[in-house]
């Protein structure tokens, strides 16, 4: 039953742009943010809130822009390299950040990401300052596509990746390494006594989450066609945490549900009124007050009672 619902949901998402072509961009962006929010959700399992994940999102988008300028012009290669770039930045930052817990972890992530933001905005000659850098349309496995065709390829590729990467992350979270994350949250000392290196568990989780954010950033960079420092601003990081919490951290689909919900809500609100901030804010308050386990929690609970 849940598999059928999930498959139907993916099918609906796949067909929506046929009905309303402009939705393709919104959905691509939502999936991209879903990847990054999934990264945040992985760390949330260990009780660690990162208010700095937009840094990896932006780092990988900038990586795409720089690699494209350097002559790398293939979608697959660019995606892989930029995700590796995100993971590399994650490994460097994670190596010292995972020593901290609670508010210190959150604040240090924020601090590091804001340093990155300031560099992107200030290194005018390198990053183009606040005007950012263009991301050109790459070839897809050697086939040079026009922009509209590329955007469709990107959308369906993201959708496919959403399913594949989602399944892979599900496997990771269900593995001993994944369960160790919840154990860090409940009793870290016991974990050390059991002989499991907490530092390594968290570093792996951190690199995985940075890579996920990187994948999202690369997709967003291609979809938008331009990278600006605002990608790394702390409000963008907060946005990712919000998506993760909104969707629910109970399972992998939560992050994507949250992202789709927020992006579609935002799109609907701006078409109605100038005070779109008000509508989005009210909807968030309602979700957070009445759905403590996020939107995904609704489905998960129903499933439990069904059994």
């Amino acid at each position: 039953m849940p598999t059928i619902i999930a498959a139907a949901a993916v099918l609906v998402i796949a067909l929506l742009p046929v009905a309303a072509p402009w939705l393709q961009f919104v959905l691509t962006l939502a999936i991209a943010k879903g990847f990054a929010a999934l990264g945040v959700a992985v760390l949330l399992r260990a009780g660690l809130i990162s208010i700095g994940h937009a840094m990896f999102f932006a780092a990988s988008a900038y990586a795409v822009a720089f690699l494209a300028r350097a002559g790398v012009n293939d979608l697959g290669l660019l995606l892989i390299l930029s995700v590796l770039g995100g993971a590399l930045v994650g490994a460097v930052a994670g190596s010292f950040l995972v020593r901290y817990r609670a508010i210190f972890f959150a604040m240090l992530n924020l601090a590091v990401s804001m340093v990155f933001y300031a560099l992107c905005a200030k290194l005018y000659g390198v990053t183009g300052g606040t005007d950012g850098k263009p991301v050109p349309v790459p070839a897809v496995f050697g086939v040079v596509l026009g922009e509209p065709a590329f955007k469709s390829v990107l959308f369906y590729l993201s959708l496919g990746l959403m399913v594949l990467v989602g399944l892979a992350v599900q496997r990771y979270l269900n593995s001993p390494l994944g369960h160790a994350l919840s154990a860090v949250h409940t009793n870290e000392i016991r974990l050390e006594y059991l002989g499991i290196p907490v530092w390594a568990v968290l570093l792996i989780a951190y690199v995985v989450s940075a890579a996920l954010a990187g994948l999202g950033g690369a997709i967003a960079g291609f979809a938008i066609g331009r990278v600006v420092p605002d990608f790394a601003f702390w409000t963008a990081s907060g946005h990712l945490v919000l998506i993760a919490v909104l969707g629910g951290i109970g399972g992998v689909p939560g992050a994507f549900i949250g992202a789709l919900f927020l992006e579609l809500l935002h799109s609907a609100a701006v078409t109605v009124t100038d005070s779109w901030n008000l509508i989005v804010g009210m909807a968030l308050i309602i979700v957070i007050m009445f759905m403590p386990k996020g939107i995904y929690g609704l489905f998960a609970r129903k499933e439990a009672t069904g059994l």
Partner: peptide
């Protein structure tokens, strides 16, 4: 809304044949 929202809205408006011209934008970015 930032570049992302602006692009989404631009695509939505452009999809409607009634909207023939865009007057955009204030910000250089």
């Amino acid at each position: 809304q930032g570049a992302q929202g602006v692009i989404a809205e631009y695509r939505r408006l452009a999809g409607d044949a009634k909207n023939q011209v865009m007057v955009a934008a204030l910000s250089s970015a």
